[in-house]
């Protein structure tokens, strides 16, 4: 047991925790982006609302979700602990500014991470918290004609305060009643300051992952003459370009759509 204690108290052990939580959060980003692509489907928010409902009510997903929240906290706390340690390792600063060549992202992981943390707080308090713990999010009812496949949408006001969601069949219609987070998202993304926050955060995410993804592999010791370049490629193109770009497009598209309405 003391080996584990020693390990996770060591500089390398702490870095291991950073790397593993970081990589776990990276996998979540893929899932999250995949789900959120439903925002681009023209179904009146049907798919997206059902997906949001699924995420918050399917028990295994819920367990993973709490792991995720824990990862974010651990990642941030350890970052803080390591940063404090690193500051202590150089109590007297240089008079001249550091001119050693190193990438901008690698030198500013703490700053980028802090931006992301602030963003996550805003993001989660606005959507996740309101969705889960308040009744500020309204409901929608989606009626899908099973033979024609046409879905119609209408507002829905639950009779019971405890109502969460329901799926039922009335004749040849499937009736899905679910919280309408989609409208909330559309409303938020209609505000310019909100969009700006999102775009900045996604910029931060891009730079954070540009360094963080491949750095995590180095930290856990997975370096290989043949595979490390692959990891660097994935880290750059998937995690630093495609994913942040995908996320950033959502508020942008909704904002410009709201302008044209």
């Amino acid at each position: 047991m003391s080996d584990f204690k020693q390990t996770f108290n060591s500089s390398l052990g702490k870095k291991l925790i950073m790397a593993l939580t970081g990589l776990f959060l990276c996998t979540f980003l893929i899932v999250h982006l995949g789900g959120n692509l439903l925002l681009f489907s023209k179904d009146g928010g049907f798919g997206f609302n059902v997906y949001a409902n699924f995420l918050t009510h399917f028990p295994p997903v819920e367990v993973v979700a709490y792991l995720l929240y824990l990862s974010i906290i651990v990642h941030a706390v350890y970052a803080l602990v390591l940063t404090i340690g690193n500051r202590k390792a150089r109590p007297v600063k240089y008079a001249s500014s550091n001119n050693s060549p190193a990438s901008v992202s690698s030198k500013n992981m703490g700053l980028l991470g802090s931006i992301l943390l602030v963003f996550i707080v805003i993001h989660m308090s606005d959507f996740w918290y309101k969705y889960k713990y308040t009744d500020t999010v309204a409901f929608k009812e989606y009626r899908t004609n099973l033979s024609s496949g046409i879905t119609t949408v209408s507002d829905f006001t639950p009779t019971s305060k405890d109502f969460e969601h329901s799926v039922s069949t009335q004749g040849d219609e499937e009736v899905v009643r679910v919280k309408d987070i989609h409208t909330k998202v559309a409303a938020s993304f209609g505000q310019l300051w909100y969009v700006i926050i999102y775009v900045i955060a996604m910029g931060a995410l891009s730079f954070h992952l540009l360094h963080g993804f491949q750095s995590a592999f180095r930290t856990v010791g997975w370096i290989h003459r043949k595979y490390t370049p692959v990891i660097e490629f994935v880290g750059t193109w998937l995690f630093a370009v495609i994913i942040p770009l995908g996320f950033a497009l959502m508020p942008l598209v909704y904002y410009f759509q709201s302008l044209s309405k």
């Binding site: 500089s11 390398l12 870095k15 202590k88 390792a89 190193a102 990438s103 690698s106 360094h211």
Partner: peptide
């Protein structure tokens, strides 16, 4: 060696690569 390195009070690595460059 890692245990001794930690004991000496060096910081931890963030893979910036400045060391390699210098």
């Amino acid at each position: 060696m890692v245990a001794q390195m930690d004991e000496e009070g060096f910081g931890s690595c963030t893979n910036t690569g400045a060391c390699e460059a210098e």
